[in-house]
Structures are given as structure tokens and as C-alpha cells.
Design a protein around this nucleic acid. Structure first.
Length: 675
DNA sequence: GAAGCCAAACTTTTT
DNA sequence: GTTTGGCTTC
């Protein structure tokens, strides 16, 4: 044990060591600035809990912000603990943790264990349907209501633990005696949201589906009502605590065993307020867990002091922030560059040429994979991508068009979802006519009403037609749906036999001749076909992962795969891509927790930083701070004077975030301004 | 009744 | 650039 001690404790500085050795039963907050080694502290603390305090690995729960972060921690812990023990640790996002236990204990709160996870896309489509009946009323008032807005209101409500019943009651009370006609647009919007929230919930339950927020809502419910589900927990660690919302906090409290709680966070890096994250949770924890101690990690091991100074100058402008320091023993390094460009095309060209120049100038010491371009939003990537392409610079886009949202992936997943959960209508509707079988809107409506009458799923109903146990419907559909029913049945057989997800997908592709379908309907079928192959790779990887982790064997491999694909933040192709030597393009949000030798941030302008549609200016400032602190050595901020915004050329000013910094620290920062 | 084609509108951040 | 909606053709 002592040699193991030396291996991880010896590598820590004083504050880090204090955090790791902090008594397990005393609640702990680790406030960790960027690059202060928080992952190292977290993994070391987990190792310490096991090796020094003798906690069984299976009694420790570590919650990360993304599944990728969990994976990273797993890898790091394997050298300290070995594969077996790491496999027993309960690690993942709040969502994946809930999903995992809901599968096991669904029955305790009246759910079926084969529930589907409804993604944002599907939820939005459902909402569009539900909002249709309000169209006329809204048109009369000369207003429209966007499903995205309603969904975010519902999501916010769920994040605060407000059920559709609470929501509706509140609205009814508020607008008692006011008719729809007399309401102003905002009131009407609230009223409609309340009504639709209710219908949305009913519909999801009928579909045997949970949306992302439901995973947390029902997770809390289950853990509260079925305490046996958390009997294993002796310590919970939560990473990125500044970005947890109310229900996630509630979840943490529910799972936590007495005071055995460790959280890691940094108020300065709170960038998910729009997802109902509450910095207040830090204070709440101090109240709810008496005796909570605090350890500050203030030494930055990532960046040069020049990068750090600029970053700190930016964040210091937030007058309400909790004062913290961050220092580094690294040398000053190169002064960050602030570059003005006339147009976005010039800006993109500058970025591309500069990358090429630096690679050549350093004689290959810097490679493409050492560069990251961090954007406020994805749409900014277009010009930059094409300019990189022009210069022959390879790039990868982190979380741009997300892998599991591609149509070819969704098509195949729809079939698998139907196989696992026939009640999940969004999947049924997609699969039944892909490839086109001549089953259109009218036919589907007829199927829906007949299925409703028999109180069975749509799939079960067309199976009856196929078997001849129910009469065919008005536009004869028996012939059209027969290949579909046969395919589903074949896949269902495979699933029940516990075939691997990869095998099932292969069979599916063959059965519906999906490659031919892609060729026929998509110009870029080749890259789409490559994604299909990637999906199969993902399925194989997930299966091996599950085997390594001795996952519950009662579950079919298919269900395990479906869950992994719903909750996966991005294609797990980053492992292969990293070795491909490519420039990374990512949003600032997606860059959280990552680092690169060179970081470039375009569009440092009013309207982008801060983004025009975010009322919380301080959060926007923190976002720029997060982006800047990703840089180890070189940092470039660029901005233009004119930019296309939603199809219109507009004059734009340099971001006030840097404007203030330049005027207040002109000498210290000495940004090289090249025009 | 379904599918395919063209014009128009819309673009924050994500589990 | 991408998705949606309306229109025409099969």
C-alpha cells in the first residue's frame, strides 16, 4: 500500500494533497481554477478512498459532466487501481447514472424497463404536433410560438422540479377568469406551455419514453422512494459542480451517504446558466451539509503566465465574482495576439495562414493537432472550414453536427428502438417508411386511430394486419407493410437471443438494403455509409465496454447499446481522430475541460461575445475566460469590422470584454494589435 | 395518396 | 448551408 501511496500522493502539491487526504466523511468543496489539476485530484482521491480507506470500488460514485470525461477518468485510474476495480466504480453523467438504475428499478415507480430515451429532436417533433391546434388562435393574435421555446420552458421547469401538475395549477391560479382572447402574448404563451406540458407528459408515458430531463426527474423519484437502490453508496464525487442545476443537486443529496460528498467546481467557469445551472448550489451545499470544508487549487499548470494574465484580466471585469487567485510558475511566454480583420473571410484566412506559418516556423514542433479554434456557436465554423480546406489543413469538428443526429444513424436507430420498445411512436413513424414503402400521412393516421381503438401499439396493429388477424385498412396497406413487419420480427428474434448490437445492425442493413437506399437518395452517400460503419464500430466498442464492466446481464445487448447511443455526447471517434493530426474546431462549451498548445478565438465582437441573445452578460464573459484558459502557450483573439449575421451584413464592434481589458491594462498586457 | 422538387426561412451554447 | 413547406407529378 505504501508504494501505491508514493505513486499518486507524491505527485501532488500541498493543496492538491490536502484535498486528496481530506477525511472521507467530511463534506468537501474543491474550488479548482482552470488547469489546476482537478482531474488528477479527483482520480487520486478516488484511489485514496479505495487504497487507504478501504472503500470497495463499487461503493463509490463519480459524476462527470460528459461521458467522455468519465472515460478519461477511467483510463487514468486504471494504472492506479487496475481494470477490475475501475470497472466496479460507478461513473458517468447524472443522466447515465439515472438511466442505468432506472433500467434496474423501473418497476418501483411504475415504469417499464424497456423505456426509450427521447432525444431533443424527437421531443421537438412531438411538440410541433401538440402546438398545431393552437395555430389558429395564435394567428388571430398575429403571433407564433416556437416549439423550441416551449421545450426549453418545460425543460427549465423540470430542472427545478416543477411537474406539469404544479405548472398547470400555478397558471390556472394566475389567470383565473381571464379568457384566452384577453391574454397578452406572454400570458398566452405561458398558458399554452402549461397545457402542452401536460399533454407532452401524457404522450411520453404512453410512448413508454423518458426525455433527458425525465431521466433526472424519475431518477430522483426512484432513489427517494426505493432506498435499496442507493444502499451501495459510500461516497459521491461530483465534477463541474458549478454547472449542476437544482434537480441534479437534489439527486446528489439523495444518493449521498451522510456527509461523504466531494465536489469539484469553479464559479468562474460556470457557463451553463441557460440549462438552469445554479452557482448557488455551492452555498446550498454548505447549508445542507454542515461542516463542509473548502480547498482552493490556485496553481495553474497549463498556461504560460502571459495567457493566464490576459484570461484573469478578462474575468476580473466581473465585479460580482468571488475573488480567487490563480498563479503559475511557468514563464511569461508569448504575448497573446489580438487581431483585427476587415471581413470574416479575411479573419478565416488569417487563422489558416497563421496555423500553416506556425507549423512551418517551428519546424514541425507544433503540429495541426496542437491547434484549436474555439467558437461561440457552430455556425461560425463554415467560413473557417472552407479557408482551412483551401490551405490544405485537415480539421475535425467537435460536436458540430452530432453523430447520433445524422439521418443515416437515426434511420437505423429507429428500427432498433422499435424492436426494443414498440410503443415508441417517433421511432415507428420513421422506420415504417424508410426506405419508402408508400406509407404516408393518411395511412399512418388510419393506423393510429385503429391502434388506439384496440388499445395496442401501432406496430402490434400492423402486425395483426400482416397476420390476417385484423382486417386491412382503407388505403390497403398490408402489402406495403409486410417487409417492415418481417424485418422487425427477424430483428426482435435476434435481440431476444441476445445477439450483439453490431450483428443486429448488420442484419438490418441487409434486410432493408440500406446501402442501396443511401445511394439512391443521397448525393453524399459515401460519407453517410462511412457513418453507418462508424455506428457499427461504436456498437462493437460499447459491447466490449459492457463486458469489461460486468454490466447487468438481464439486459439485452441491444438495449444497452441504445442507451449508450442516446446518452453519448459525441461519436467516440476522438480516439482515432486525435492521432490523425487535425486542427480541432469546437464551440467554447464543448472545449470545457480540454487544452491545446495553441488556441484561436474568432469573432471576439459585440453580439458574439457577449452573444446578443443571452441576457446574462457575465456568463458570456466567463465563456470567453474558459476559452482563453484552454491555451497552453499561444492565444489568438481575432475580430472583424463587418460580419454576416442571419444572412445580413452588419457592422460590428470589438468585444467590450477585451476593450475594457486593453484600456485598463495597456502596458501590462501589451497586446500586439496588427491591423 | 405519396413522393419529389424547388423556394423560402432560419440559424446559441448540450445531457 | 440546411431544413421546412408548398406545389406538381406519378
Amino acid at each position: 500500500m505504501d508504494s501505491a501511496h508514493a505513486s499518486y500522493l507524491g505527485l501532488l502539491n500541498h493543496a492538491q494533497r490536502q484535498a486528496v487526504e481530506h477525511p472521507p466523511a467530511v463534506p468537501l468543496q474543491i474550488l479548482a481554477g482552470p488547469g489546476s489539476g482537478k482531474t488528477k485530484v479527483l482520480t487520486s482521491r478516488i484511489a485514496h478512498l479505495i487504497l487507504h480507506h478501504g472503500l470497495p470500488p463499487s461503493s463509490i460514485c463519480a459524476v462527470t459532466f460528459t461521458n467522455k470525461a468519465a472515460k478519461e477518468m477511467r483510463t487514468r485510474l486504471q494504472t492506479l487501481l487496475g481494470k477490475d476495480r475501475v470497472g466496479e466504480l460507478k461513473m458517468g453523467t447524472f443522466h447515465s447514472l439515472c438511466a442505468r438504475f432506472l433500467r434496474k428499478y423501473a418497476h418501483t415507480i411504475g415504469l417499464s424497463d424497456n423505456f426509450s430515451i427521447c432525444d431533443a429532436d424527437e421531443a421537438k417533433k412531438i411538440m410541433t404536433q401538440l402546438l398545431k391546434k393552437y395555430r389558429e388562435l395564435l394567428a388571430k393574435k398575429d403571433m407564433t410560438i416556437r416549439e423550441g421555446l416551449v421545450m426549453s420552458k418545460i425543460s427549465q421547469a423540470k430542472a427545478k422540479g416543477i411537474t406539469h401538475i404544479n405548472f398547470l395549477e400555478e397558471v390556472v391560479r394566475k389567470y383565473q377568469g381571464v379568457s384566452l382572447e384577453d391574454m397578452n402574448p406572454l400570458e398566452l404563451q405561458e398558458k399554452i406551455t402549461a397545457e402542452v406540458y401536460q399533454e407532452y407528459e401524457t404522450l411520453l408515458r404512453k410512448n413508454n419514453a423518458l426525455d433527458f430531463d425525465d431521466l433526472l426527474v424519475y431518477g430522483v423519484k426512484m432513489f427517494k422512494e426505493w432506498r435499496a437502490a442507493v444502499a451501495w453508496c459510500q461516497h459521491i464525487l461530483v465534477d463541474e459542480f458549478q454547472d449542476t442545476n437544482i434537480i441534479q443537486y437534489d439527486l446528489m443529496r439523495t444518493i449521498a451517504h451522510k456527509g461523504c460528498v466531494t465536489i469539484v467546481g469553479d464559479p468562474d467557469q460556470s457557463i451553463y446558466g441557460w440549462r438552469s445551472a445554479e452557482i448557488e448550489n455551492l452555498n446550498k451545499m454548505k447549508r445542507n451539509f454542515p461542516g463542509t470544508c473548502e480547498v482552493l487549487l490556485e496553481e495553474n499548470y497549463r498556461s504560460t503566465s502571459a495567457v493566464l494574465r490576459l484570461s484573469l484580466a478578462i474575468i476580473a471585469e466581473d465585479k460580482n465574482r468571488i475573488q480567487k487567485s490563480l498563479h503559475t510558475s511557468h514563464p511569461a511566454g508569448k504575448t497573446p495576439t489580438l487581431r483585427s480583420c476587415s471581413t470574416e473571410t479575411n479573419e478565416a484566412a488569417f487563422i489558416a495562414v497563421e496555423i500553416k506559418r506556425l507549423v512551418a516556423y517551428t519546424g514541425g514542433l507544433l503540429q495541426f493537432e496542437d491547434f484549436a479554434i474555439l467558437l461561440r456557436f457552430n455556425a461560425l465554423s463554415r467560413v473557417i472550414e472552407s479557408s482551412l480546406q483551401k490551405e490544405g489543413i485537415p480539421c475535425r469538428i467537435l460536436g458540430g453536427h452530432r453523430f447520433f443526429e445524422r439521418l443515416e444513424v437515426k434511420d437505423l436507430l429507429a428500427y432498433l428502438q422499435v424492436v426494443d420498445n414498440p410503443d415508441f411512436y417517433p421511432a415507428f413513424i420513421r422506420a415504417v417508411n424508410t426506405p419508402s414503402r408508400g406509407v404516408g400521412e393518411k395511412t399512418l393516421l388510419e393506423i393510429a386511430s385503429k391502434a388506439e381503438q384496440c388499445r395496442i401499439s401501432h406496430l402490434a396493429f400492423i402486425e395483426r394486419i400482416f397476420d390476417g388477424t385484423a382486417p386491412d385498412i382503407k388505403p390497403p396497406a398490408k402489402r406495403k407493410i409486410s417487409s417492415f413487419v418481417q424485418t422487425i420480427r427477424a430483428l426482435r428474434d435476434l435481440a431476444q437471443k441476445k445477439s450483439s448490437a453490431a450483428d443486429i445492425i448488420q442484419q438490418l442493413i441487409k434486410a432493408i438494403d440500406y446501402k442501396e437506399y443511401l445511394k439512391r437518395t443521397q448525393n453524399d452517400w459515401e460519407s453517410r455509409w462511412a457513418n453507418v460503419q462508424e455506428l457499427i464500430n461504436f456498437a462493437t466498442e460499447v459491447t466490449t465496454d459492457a463486458q469489461n464492466r460486468n454490466a447487468a446481464s438481464s439486459e439485452t445487448p441491444l438495449r444497452f447499446f441504445l442507451q449508450a447511443s442516446s446518452l453519448s455526447s459525441e461519436g467516440d471517434n476522438d480516439g482515432t481522430d486525435a492521432t490523425n493530426n487535425k486542427v480541432t474546431i469546437a464551440t467554447c462549451h464543448a472545449a470545457k475541460g480540454l487544452e491545446w498548445p495553441v488556441v484561436m478565438i474568432p469573432s471576439v465582437e459585440e453580439g458574439t461575445f457577449p452573444f446578443a441573445r443571452n441576457d446574462d452578460v457575465e456568463e458570456e464573459r466567463r465563456l470567453l475566460y474558459v476559452a482563453c484558459t484552454r491555451a497552453k502557450g499561444l492565444l489568438f483573439l481575432t475580430h472583424t469590422c463587418r460580419r454576416m449575421i442571419a444572412g445580413q451584413q452588419k457592422d460590428v464592434d470589438r468585444s467590450s470584454f477585451v476593450e475594457n481589458v486593453i484600456s485598463k491594462y495597456p502596458v501590462k498586457l501589451s497586446l500586439s494589435i496588427i491591423i
